[in-house]
Simulated scan of single mutants.
Amino acid sequence: MADSGNHANRAKAGQSMIRRLTAVGAVPAIAALGVAIAAPAGAATTTKTVHHVSRQAILTDIARIHPATSTAPYGTCKLVVPSTIRLDRAGYFGYIGLTGGCALHPGISAAWFAGGDTFTGSSYTVLFDHDDAFLGGNDTLGVLSWKGWFAFDDQGHTYTQDTPRTTIKVGSWAGLQTSRSGSKVTINTRAVRYATSLDKNIPWAGETGVIQYRPKGGTAWTSLKSFSTNSTGATSYSYTSTATRDYRAVYTEQPYIWGATSPTSQR
């Protein structure tokens, strides 16, 4: 099997290719919205030490691997990746691993790719080589299907591969402030979203959403006012109410941007 080489050097060289794997960083103070990812199912699951590297580094490793052939698959090999991925400045890709029959056998080598018809022409590539996993890619957004290229163990057994799907969108965050003057309540809200091309958060201009309220101590939310944000990602609404209520702003999920819900404020 392949000698996977100097992992530290290759990881350093590949940082410009993909910066989002394994760790969840700090969420901006404007909100604390996340995307929940369920733990993978299955009795046998292996997780790997993951290195983010360039596509060329992965191809170099693959060139040293020569999959064995067999008359029939020995079992299944399933890629464990998040069903949803939230790209943001903090960096997040989530867990990655293998499950199925191949997780029961040592010396697994396997490769998948997503966002393209070939391994070299895809947006994301992942290679498992014994006890390590290497992932390279870019900031492609949307619903991607993973396709298997090969999977085998050090005994020459080959495995069928699954085709999981991953929805990748950029993150957004919402904030909200309220004030009262007599019976007049003013609600100010603002949202930002991550921009992959700039590698930073920017105002979420032109985004739609709705301001909601619930009675003090209540649980059910009622829509109060629909809105569209201005060029700074902000909007303001005032109305008359003597009741004490909780308020929040809910921003609509978009094809390439996760929605956001602000913290609540009581007036």
Rank of each mutant, 00 (worst) to 15 (best):
S181C: 09
F119D: 06
T186S: 15
H105L: 12
T125D: 14
G148C: 09
N138T: 07
L144Y: 03
R193F: 12
L104M: 06
L127A: 06
T140P: 09
G142L: 06
R193N: 11
F150L: 05
P164R: 00
S109C: 14
S183R: 12
L144N: 02
S183Y: 05
T178Y: 02
K169N: 10
Y124W: 15
T186I: 08
G148D: 07
W146M: 00
V126Y: 02
G156R: 04
G115M: 04
G121A: 15
H130V: 14
S122W: 05
F119P: 10
V170C: 11
V192T: 10
L127R: 09
L176V: 11
A151Q: 03
P106S: 08
K169M: 11
T140Q: 13
Q177D: 09
I108T: 00
T125V: 13
L127I: 08
I108H: 00
S145I: 12
F113H: 02
I187T: 03
I187N: 01
A195T: 05
F152I: 05
L135M: 12
G136R: 00
G116M: 07
G175C: 07
P106Y: 08
W149L: 15
I187R: 01
T189R: 03
D132T: 11
D154C: 06
A133W: 06
K169Y: 03
T158P: 02
W112R: 00
S172G: 15
D154F: 03
G171S: 15
A111K: 05
T167I: 09
G142V: 07
A114M: 10
G136W: 00
F113R: 01
T120K: 12
L104H: 03
T163H: 15
W149H: 13
S109A: 14
N138V: 07
G115K: 03
V170N: 11
T178H: 03
V143D: 13
G116Y: 06
A151P: 00
D153A: 00
F152L: 04
F134I: 08
H157A: 04
G137I: 00
L104A: 07
S145C: 08
T120M: 06
I187V: 11
R193W: 05
F128C: 05
L135R: 01
S197G: 14
V143P: 07
A133G: 10
L127Y: 13
G121I: 13
G136P: 02
A110T: 03
D154V: 04
Y159I: 05
F113Y: 08
S123V: 11
G137H: 02
Y124L: 12
T158W: 01
L104V: 06
L141W: 01
T160W: 06
D153P: 00
G116S: 10
V126Q: 01
R190W: 13
A151V: 04
G142N: 13
T120Y: 05
I108Q: 01
L144P: 04
T196M: 13
T196A: 14
G136C: 07
